[in-house]
Design a protein around this nucleic acid. Structure first.
Lengths: 98, 98
DNA sequence: AAAATAGTTCAAACATTTTTGAACTATTTA
DNA sequence: TAAATAGTTCAAAAATGTTTGAACTATTTT
């Protein structure tokens, strides 16, 4: 495990967040997770929205590095949920705070 | 003047909005307009944030087609303001409504 | 132990977005 | 009327983002 301090400015995170939201597949993933409202494995999401596992891996990585999802690995599987705090801070409150 | 009915679904607009927000120059423009809080010509914004007029034209066009800005042409100049309604509907309320 | 499953990584191919400069329209100023 | 100003359009170049399949790690099932 690396213990690098996460040194990203709010502006950098803000941009990563909007970039992560600027894609139809990632919006589908987000909608799916919001409506499910509980932890689910990446692979299951990928099956539902019909993308390859490689493509899934790519999109989940982007969502994760924007802080929009929380992930937990259990054995072979990686479980994800939405990170509401990030949505609140960088999306819902965006216009108010700029 | 064309009188084409604007036939874009909410999902299409939602994507255009996030794509428009996924760029550092356009975020700068938006911040500038928000803080000014009154109408301003494209050219003035372009000068402040130091971009070429061609680049300005390109970015303002994207913001406009996402509905994030209102524009008004007066003689040579094009005046812009933020369109708060679009921010409210597609950004602030995004997470609540998906 | 072998096969199956979940996910990652890599580089190449492909697709989309952004920048650039030149040429253009329309308006205003000298 | 000529020159200056504000902005647009175009196509080519440059930069970024996404998909693909093969090879890989790690875990679980048979």
């Amino acid at each position: 495990m690396s213990d690098n301090k996460q040194t990203k400015s709010n502006d950098e995170i803000q941009l990563l967040v909007f970039k992560a939201l600027a894609d139809p597949i990632r919006l589908e993933i987000i909608k799916y997770l919001k409506h499910l409202d509980h932890e689910v494995a990446c692979g299951e999401v990928g099956k539902v929205i019909e993308i390859s596992k490689t493509s899934g891996s790519y999109h989940f990585k982007l969502l994760e590095s924007a802080g929009l999802i929380n992930t937990r690995r259990e054995a072979r599987e990686k479980y994800v949920t939405l990170n509401e705090q990030t949505f609140n801070k960088y999306v819902t409150d965006f216009y108010r705070n700029i």
